[in-house]
Design a protein around this nucleic acid. Structure first.
Length: 110
DNA sequence: GCCCTGACGGGAT
DNA sequence: TATCCCGCCAGGG
């Protein structure tokens, strides 16, 4: 549809349930743009200006590192949000990343 | 209208 | 197995 590329990314990210995290690449692939993982992060940054809530804190890189924490009001906000959902975070990295990882996306029709 | 950057990822060395 | 480099798309200067 004409929904912007970002809008699709937001929909995909909203599919991530609480207590789970996903990677930029997984989201990119979910929106039909595998490889455009960078664009996903860009969309997340802009998501703060979006009306709908987007759990951007549930999106980390493939290493499970909170690379986007600096985009939050406070550098610890992202980590606190994750821990608040039951996700263990240490040194800005998701501890049980492999266990909380979630990629069962509902492929978005373009 | 061109060039560079940017919350990443995967392939090649 | 670890590290480096290039490619993805879009927005801003």
């Amino acid at each position: 549809m004409d929904e912007g590329f970002f809008t699709r990314v937001y929909e995909a990210v909203r599919q991530v349930p609480s207590g789970r995290v996903t990677s930029y690449g997984a989201v990119a692939a979910a929106v039909g743009a595998p490889g455009a993982s960078r664009m996903v992060g860009w969309a997340m940054n802009k998501s703060f200006s979006q009306p709908g809530f987007v759990p951007a804190h549930r999106v980390v890189n493939r290493s499970g590192m909170l690379t986007g924490k600096h985009a939050f009001p406070n550098a610890d906000t992202m980590q606190e949000l994750l821990k608040s959902e039951g996700i263990e975070v240490e040194e800005d990295v998701v501890v049980n990343f492999k266990e909380v990882f979630w990629d069962d996306f509902n492929l978005i029709n373009s």
